[in-house]
Nucleic acid binder design. Structure first.
Lengths: 214, 214
DNA sequence: TAGATTGTTAATCGATTAACAATC
DNA sequence: TAGATTGTTAATCGATTAACAATC
């Protein structure tokens, strides 16, 4: 694999996920070869964008021909690191945590939920998904080691988010998705993504408001 | 209100949501005035960024002093269009749809779930949240009109996403959040946001992979 | 007044798009 | 070969940051 010298934009990485989903669908349909224009049309970007995104990582196509679907899919999965499976912990066994635990989309992409944690005594011991019992937050460090968990999803109230982040970081977690609507801090070397569901709706209402003003 | 001539970056809009959350917390704590540096420190951006973001919409501060928390919060909420409430439909009464229906974070920001729809006969008639009964997808057009619903959240399988989008658009929905991992098309004048949960994890695994290569 | 902090402009940085030579 | 499409460079566009005059 080519060692990347130039920094890859985060937007490029997100788009690679989208390309890979399209390629999976194309593969199912029995499509063998696609052009950057095909990919672009199906995912709503420009062909130049597709080629540029791929160019960060190497040369995967054939001039005059295009890309082999199966091959390109394999490459992108490797680039994204999803040629292997990953073990994931969910913190917070409320509605959202439960739903995420049962969400098929994670399994489908090789993410296996291996632990669900909460503080609430009523929830501990309950079975959430895949026969996983909710454990107390205290057990995070040992469970993460025992089950080789690398990623964590936070689905606790905003007020508890930073505390949970700190526990996770101390336990050696390297990547966190935070669903709590709360800015949190992680040390260098730990990757964080903030997913703010209400803020998503607010971008829509902003746009609707602007439309009215026009 | 100043009519915006210059296009506001989407990133600015998202940050306004984040600023407003911080301001709400500050208000609760009884903080009266904040500087751009205060906001910046708490949400993890630069003070210049905060001032630039606000400058798209007017002058809300006092030089040498800062911003009045309560006042700025009110302005931002008005800009985002969340000085009023919005009615929302959820399509898909599976795990994710159910969780989103019960999610407190929406209510807290003035988003009221007024309808939940599914195709599955077993789900129809079940009570999801706020005493809302799941209705068949066929009922979307009339329910949307009846309940004055403007926004919709799609939580159906990828294969059904475009079909649902088309129904929603035909019913007059103006803003859609799509949780299905599927690129969909909307006509001009309808706003769409794609929230791809697995892709979020994949950005993390990409980063972890890169770290290893270094 | 002196110190603080805004609002705004200009400079920088980064990402997207267009264009085209390379090449299948 | 001629047509098609990649990979890559240069041009454009847009967003962030730095700097500072305005002003409380």
């Amino acid at each position: 694999m080519k060692t990347t010298k130039i920094k890859v934009p985060e937007a490029t990485v997100s788009r690679l996920s989208v390309y890979s989903r399209y390629l999976e669908q194309a593969l199912e349909k029995g499509i063998v070869t696609v052009s950057s224009a095909d990919i672009a049309k199906n995912v709503g970007v420009t062909p130049a964008q597709v080629r540029k995104d791929l160019a960060y990582f190497g040369e995967f196509g054939t001039r005059g021909v295009g890309y082999k679907v199966e091959e390109l899919l394999k490459y992108i999965k490797k680039i994204l690191g999803i040629n292997t499976t990953w073990n994931v912990a969910i913190i917070g066994a409320g509605n959202l945590g439960t739903a995420l635990c049962r969400y098929k989309g994670f399994q489908k992409r090789g993410f296996h939920i291996k632990g669900v944690f909460d503080k609430d005594a009523n929830k501990i011991g309950q079975i959430m998904c895949n026969n996983i019992k909710v454990k107390h937050i205290e057990n995070i460090p040992q469970e993460i080691k025992k089950n080789d968990i690398t990623l964590a999803i936070i689905a606790v109230p905003a007020s508890a988010a930073q505390e949970v982040v700190d526990i996770l970081v101390k336990s050696g977690i390297k990547g966190i998705i935070n669903f709590a609507p709360q800015t949190v801090n992680v040390p260098k070397g730990v990757f964080l993504r903030q997913v703010d569901l209400a803020a998503q709706l607010e971008v829509l209402t902003f746009n609707l408001n602007e439309e009215v003003l026009k």
